[in-house]
């Protein structure tokens, strides 16, 4: 972990350089702040406006986490059902891919009409963006279980349940975690989009208010915190992965 932080200095430096160029460019070209505020202004707004902002941040964090947990559970459950019942897989899998082609922006207002302004339509939006990467990753993991291991388990008398719990599921954990990492970052985005639909608080609400009143600095504050939140969630999954599948890391290290 420490190692990774130390390796992180390179991208951090590039980021810092970009900020400096941005700052200098804005100052030199005399760009008005409502068009593009310099990074220092954004930082200042982030600190000064914290009292107002942290409430929004909190509700977005809550919504993303709840949505992520529900979305990934739905994703994993879908994968398990599709895997265990081949007939369902053949008939449903293509439809799942189609579900990812429906633009959320179009679907969101419809969901409000159907379900009102409560938690329900928001969770549905986050679930829609979250479940797919996990379903695909888990299904691939289940399918790639080596035949020799399956053959051994069956010869040794494993029934379908034992085959799944003792072999296929643990074998797929690394793949499932790949899916979880993607979904974790999507869930924050999903939460913000769902807040646009109408909510009392949240980064999405803050963002809409800011952009409609030309407070571009606040829009950037919102973007900054969305990125930080995604990154934190990603790291959380990474930690869980390291804890749960130590054997894989040791095996990879050996190679």
């Amino acid at each position: 972990m420490m190692n990774n932080l130390l390796k992180g200095w390179r991208p951090a430096l590039v980021l810092l350089l970009l900020f400096i160029i941005w700052e200098v460019a804005v100052k030199l070209a005399d760009i008005p702040a409502w068009l593009l505020p310099p990074p220092t202004d954004i930082l200042k707004e982030a600190i000064d406006g914290w009292g107002n902002f942290h409430e929004h941040l909190q509700s977005t964090i809550k919504l993303s986490l709840l949505g992520f947990v529900i979305g990934s559970s739905v994703g994993l459950l879908t994968a398990i059902i599709l895997h265990l019942i081949p007939m369902v897989r053949e008939s449903i899998y293509p439809l799942l891919i189609l579900s990812q082609n429906v633009p959320i922006i179009v679907l969101a207002p419809l969901l409000v009409i159907w379900f009102g302004f409560g938690l329900m339509p928001k969770i549905i939006v986050i679930t829609l963006v979250c479940f797919f990467p996990i379903t695909v990753a888990a299904l691939d993991g289940f399918r790639q279980t080596p035949n020799e291991l399956k053959h051994y388990m069956m010869m040794a008398g494993a029934n379908r349940r034992q085959l799944f719990w003792k072999l296929e599921l643990p074998f797929s954990l690394p793949a499932i975690f790949s899916g979880l990492k993607i979904s974790a970052t999507y869930s924050v985005m999903g939460a913000v989009i769902s807040e646009w639909l109408g909510a009392k608080s949240g980064i999405g609400v803050y963002m809409t208010l800011a952009s409609s009143s030309f407070r571009t600095d606040r829009v950037f504050v919102a973007i900054l915190f969305i990125m930080i939140l995604s990154l934190l969630l990603f790291m959380l999954i990474l930690l869980a992965e390291r804890f749960l599948i130590r054997w894989k890391r040791m095996e990879d290290d050996k190679q």
Binding site: L149, H151, Y152, M155, A156, K166, P170, F171, E251
Partner: peptide
């Protein structure tokens, strides 16, 4: 499952320790 089986490849489960692997046949 009527017979005990040792395949051509060891077919040990990589996420189980040796002791846990050895217990697998009994576990099933």
């Amino acid at each position: 499952g009527s017979i005990s089986y040792m395949p051509q490849t060891p077919s040990l489960l990589p996420w189980r320790t040796i002791l846990q692997n050895v217990l697998l046949g009994q576990e099933l």
